[in-house]
């Protein structure tokens, strides 16, 4: 899917847990997520802590979309 969005000319960032699959299927901007059942959250934490994680991941996603890349790149969440 991510490739079709890219092919349509829209910069796209793939937020996913299993980054090797993302690399294999050919996403260009990749941000690692938390876990498969809750990529942008963590039920073990409080609601506010979860939101903080979500903010960080999405900040990284925005950074990825604002960064020129030449090849497939994984943007680690700080």
């Amino acid at each position: 899917m991510v490739k079709e969005v890219e092919r349509a000319g829209i910069p796209v960032v793939h937020v996913c847990t299993v980054t090797p699959i993302s690399m294999t299927v050919g996403a260009n901007r990749i941000v690692p997520a938390v876990a498969i059942p809750h990529p942008l959250g963590n039920p073990a934490l409080s609601m506010e802590e979860e939101k903080q994680i979500r903010r960080k991941i999405l900040d990284t996603a925005l950074k990825a979309l604002s960064t020129e890349v030449e090849e497939q790149t994984i943007f680690e969440v700080e």
């Binding site: 991510v2 349509a8 829209i10 910069p11 796209v12 960032v13 937020v15 993302s22 942008l40």
Partner: peptide, 16 residues
């Protein structure tokens, strides 16, 4: 993706 282009979307965040 065609719809997104037509709707003037600039960037996509795709979650898996």
């Amino acid at each position: 993706s065609r719809k997104l282009v037509n709707d003037g979307v600039d960037v996509v965040i795709l979650t898996s």
